[in-house]
Nucleic acid binder design. Structure first.
Length: 721
DNA sequence: CGGGGAGTAT
DNA sequence: ATACTCC
């Protein structure tokens, strides 16, 4: 949410002086001197907009349930009211207030839980997309703020309007807008009109209100947007830059100066913006290093050269939960599983291939409770990532939980006590090009044709914009773009019936996907890589006598007697995955599918995943072979075979192929973990052979996306990955 | 002091 | 790869 607060006071200025002090402002200096009949061309001649939605989460909730409009409403996350509507604010509530305090101030406060960000995220992207449909240079800042560089738009509109006729829309900082001659600031004046139009569009199309700031850079636009609070806009003129900077009550109010930076500045005796302006740069450099020092100093003067950079699809997707305390491995595992379930589903909708997985934890500590995070990350084996994409989400989750637990054990020694207060799971390194999923699958790529807005042949329901995107500010009929995603998942798991619930979800889930995938190659590449992985797997097996699926490193850590046992002929020969499979690996084209049905085993890495995490198996993250062929024999047979090898425990708690003795030697927490996985495995196993050829996502667009200039296409605005 | 997500430094 | 910082 927005963490900003504004308080304005009055003060005198020393802008000129300060500006001269500051170096690294070559451009600013240039514009400040000499014949500046056209200062626009020199320095801060940009026109930047900053949009900030009013109490965003609360607005979304009021849209979802209009009955909440007229009551004091707070959005709660854990013990905090993260934001509240204006009815509640009239009663003295503010954001980030504890629930107790809030209830105390406003007993009638209605609270809705806002821990699930789905709806906010969707609405947030709708706003960004709407703005982008007007002009592409849009940068998101959190869920409720967007910057826009409309310099060119302004230039064009100015060329076709009578600059003597312009006036300012909304407020003008420190001025009565009626008093200022817009003709002296024609570009900002035009900017204020565009801002007003966009706010209006956001309101009419999405039902959201918000503030806007119009200025010459991001810093200033953001600062000024908050000066008139709900649902208003403000323009900052160059001559008032020092005013707005000087009236900031503390350095903390400067965007870019967070808690830590403020503290360090504090330690240098700096409290106010003005003191920072006057502070010798050299001293600042000593504390912060050159670039940072210069930046801070510039910020104090309202100077900010940072460009507005188009925000594309998110670079990572994460899901987290905080809680009072989690102290046992089993709870950790369950929490991770819960988080992954939703994360994987989101990832699947996104359509890109996650290549890195990260687990972050926060340990309980009396001091500094809310900082101190630790994380571990690792590559995601391709076959797991593909499951996410193809929709075998349950399978993917199982395997990812295993991966996550490995990372967890890298941070936490579970044999000693621990207390976690937060767990976060994250996918990053998202690859656009769909990996050719399963071999022959590509044929299914037939018609993913979509409702891509950028499609040359406008599909009926598509976004039809006025291609003259700058015209009058009536944007495209963005809203209805409803691309119903062609959901032809063959897999029966999750997906199926679920169509896109909201156009927003379809929109952005869909959109990111678009920018991905390269078409034609999908096919061949797919099969090729698949073949390759299979044979790699075969080659890799058997190093010494150690089965390929046993991680040598881990193996070494085992008690000697167990090692011995593992290597005994009886063991080796009893596992199809070790003996049988090795010989037919290459000739078992459907091995991977069989493997999905294979019950988990301590000794085999079944395709569906599970493997024994920290103990025996080769760590998936380091393994180069993708899967252990499970054998050409039907799963049923495999099962039978194993049953005979070991007595099935009476309680049927764990798979029959697991030696109870070996199992009992494992650390207690590992046992727990295994049990949990097996339990979960059973569920997974219920869906035999769900694996279908992954469809390949659209494509062709891709290349074109980079180059073509379809006026209506938003795709091209996304960063190329 | 929530739940995300981005960027930078090392 | 991990920590830190910011919003």
């Amino acid at each position: 949410m927005d963490n900003s607060e504004e308080e304005m006071e009055e003060d005198e200025n020393e802008w000129r002086k300060g500006l001269v002090d500051s170096e690294a402002i070559s451009s600013s200096v240039a514009s400040g001197s000499g014949l500046n009949k056209a200062p626009e061309l020199l320095s801060e001649n940009r026109v930047i907009l900053h949009f900030d939605l009013d109490c965003f989460y609360a607005q979304v909730e009021m849209i979802r349930n209009p009955a909440l409009r007229d009551v004091p409403l707070g959005v709660q996350q854990k013990y905090i009211v993260v934001t509240c509507n204006y009815v509640a604010r009239e009663q003295g509530l503010t954001k980030l207030m504890s629930v107790t305090d809030a209830k105390e101030k406003c007993p009638q406060l209605v609270l809705v839980n806002g821990e699930n960000l789905t709806h906010y995220r969707e609405m947030s992207y709708k706003v960004t997309e709407l703005l982008m449909s007007y002009s592409p240079l849009v940068e998101r800042l959190g869920f409720d703020e967007n910057f826009m560089d409309i310099t060119e738009v302004v230039e064009k509109r100015l060329a076709q309007t009578d600059s003597n006729n312009v006036s300012f829309k909304g407020h003008v900082f420190n001025n009565l807008s009626a008093d200022v001659k817009a003709s002296e600031h024609p570009r900002l004046a035009v900017g204020s009109h565009i801002a007003a139009e966009l706010r209006d569009i956001i309101h009419s199309k999405l039902g959201l209100t918000g503030c806007a700031g119009i200025a010459s850079n991001k810093l200033l636009a953001k600062l000024v947007s908050g000066t008139f609070k709900p649902n208003q806009q403000t323009t900052l003129l160059p001559q008032n830059v020092s005013d707005i900077m000087d009236c900031l009550s503390s350095l903390r109010k400067v965007p870019g100066v967070g808690h830590q930076t403020a503290k360090r500045l504090h330690s240098l005796g700096l409290e106010s913006v003005k003191s920072l302006q006057l502070f010798p740069l050299n001293n600042l450099v000593r504390e912060f290093g050159g670039p940072m020092a210069q930046r801070l100093k510039n910020l104090a003067f309202g100077i900010d050269d940072s460009p507005v950079t188009t925000t594309g699809a998110p670079q990572s997707l994460s899901d987290e939960d905080s809680f009072k305390k989690i102290s046992c491995t089993k709870d950790v595992l369950e929490k991770i599983q819960q988080l992954l379930n939703s994360l994987v589903e989101r990832m699947h909708k996104d359509g890109r291939l996650p290549q890195t997985f990260r687990l972050t934890i926060r340990r309980f500590s009396a001091t500094n409770k809310w900082f101190n995070r630790e994380s571990r990350q690792c590559p995601i084996p391709k076959h797991i990532g593909q499951k996410v994409i193809s929709g075998s989400c349950d399978d993917a989750v199982v395997q990812l939980v295993s991966l996550a637990m490995k990372l967890f054990h890298k941070m936490v020694d579970s044999s000693t006590t621990f207390h976690l207060t937060l767990i976060n799971v994250c996918f990053s390194n998202l690859q656009n090009k769909g990996p050719a999923s399963s071999g022959k699958g590509s044929i299914t790529s037939f018609f993913t044709q979509s409702t891509l807005p950028r499609n040359p042949q406008p599909l009926s329901s598509q976004i039809q914009g006025d291609s003259s995107q700058y015209g009058g500010g009536h944007c495209m009929d963005h809203q209805c773009s409803t691309n119903s995603r062609t959901s032809q998942h063959s897999s029966q798991k999750t997906v199926t019936t679920k169509s896109c619930r909201s156009s927003g979800e379809a929109l952005h889930g869909f959109r990111w996907r678009q920018s991905s995938v390269v078409a034609e190659e999908d096919n061949e590449k797919g099969s090729l890589s698949r073949e390759k992985s299979v044979s790699d797997g075969a080659n890799k097996t058997v190093t010494h006598k150690l089965p390929s699926n046993v991680d040598p490193e881990v193996f070494k850590l085992l008690p000697e007697d167990i090692q011995k046992e593992l290597l005994s002929p009886a063991y080796i020969s009893s596992f199809p995955s070790m003996s049988t499979n090795l010989s037919n690996a290459a000739s078992a084209p459907y091995a991977s599918q069989i493997a999905e049905n294979e019950p988990p085993s301590i000794f085999t890495v079944s395709q569906s995943g599970k493997n024994i995490k920290e103990i025996l198996n080769r760590s998936e993250s380091t393994s180069t072979h993708h899967q252990q062929p499970a054998g050409a024999c039907p799963a049923e047979n495999v099962k039978e075979e194993r049953k005979e090898m070991f007595p099935q425990p009476a309680d049927c708690k764990f798979p029959g192929n697991v030696d109870p003795t070996v199992f009992s030697e494992l650390p207690p927490d590992v046992q727990t973990e295994l049990m949990c996985e097996w339990k979960q495995q059973k569920i997974v196993v219920k869906h035999p052979f769900t694996k279908k050829p992954g469809r390949s996502f659209l494509t062709k667009e891709q290349k074109a996306a980079g180059k073509s200039n379809q006026a209506n296409s938003l795709l091209k605005y996304f960063k190329p990955s």
